[in-house]
């Protein structure tokens, strides 16, 4: 399925993908101030509390709900007919949404990482090993949160599925909470096991999850949605 979808993207050309990404950014443009204020507030908060390398995880947690913004904007302005009438294949539009959303995560991660490296008022300086372990974990977390959210948004639209902007996060929190409650050693064991894995493993699983999520989105997205 994803092979078919990607071949359609290729047929549409990079010009179509680039145009679709630019369109997504234009759709988000009215929300730039709102998003900027939110990110700035988080950065100020992070500066005073000192997240260190934990900022990487926080960036993934905050980037995931932002993935619902283009859907909300599309629904508010009834853009479905515009998307349907554009000379670009639907898989290209969907891929563009995944790339733009991931771009936002990359940007947030860079900002939060910069803050973590500076240290901040209550900051701490983590050793490079902590950063190396947490970055692929943050990517995996982002891939899980967004990988669940986007196919649901494409299938049911923003209004019917806006809870899914937060539900995957609650699910992850519940799993972590449950594991911690059963035995704190479970979580500790996970981190020990995770740090023993090569860093590319986390990246590979994250990319695989997003690719699978993209294939599901292409297959199940409503034509008119």
């Amino acid at each position: 399925m994803s092979g078919i979808a990607l071949s359609e993207v290729r047929d549409g050309g990079l010009q179509g993908l680039s145009a679709a990404m630019r369109l997504d950014l234009w759709v988000l443009r009215p929300y730039v101030r709102q998003l900027g204020a939110f990110v700035a507030a988080m950065l100020v908060f992070g500066f005073f509390t000192g997240w260190g390398s934990n900022g990487l995880i926080i960036a993934a947690i905050y980037a995931a709900p932002l993935a619902s913004y283009p859907f909300a904007a599309s629904e508010k302005s009834r853009l479905e007919t515009m998307y349907a009438s554009l000379p670009v294949e639907r898989p290209t539009l969907i891929l563009s949404r995944y790339l733009v959303t991931t771009g936002i995560w990359v940007g947030l991660t860079a900002a939060f990482a910069a803050l973590g490296l500076i240290g901040g008022l209550g900051g701490r300086t983590d050793d490079p090993q902590a950063w190396a372990m947490l970055l692929p974990l943050a990517a995996l977390l982002y891939a899980v949160l967004v990988g669940i959210q986007l196919p649901v948004m494409y299938r049911y639209g923003y209004t019917s599925s806006r809870l899914f902007a937060y539900l995957p996060l609650l699910l992850v929190a519940a799993v972590i909470g449950f594991a911690g409650a059963v035995s704190p050693k479970l979580l500790e064991g996970f981190f020990v096991g995770w740090s023993a894995l090569p860093s590319w493993f986390g990246w590979l699983v994250a990319v695989g999850l997003l690719a699978a999520s993209y294939a599901v989105s292409v297959r199940t997205a409503r034509l008119s949605g």
């Binding site: 010009q15 630019r22 234009w26 759709v27 443009r29 009215p30 904007a73 302005s77 479905e80 515009m82």
Partner: peptide, 17 residues
């Protein structure tokens, strides 16, 4: 079927590509 906040120049910037 366009974003209401877009200026007409931005409509072109968004669709022309």
């Amino acid at each position: 079927s366009l974003v209401e906040q877009w200026r007409l120049s931005q409509v072109e910037a968004a669709l022309a590509p």
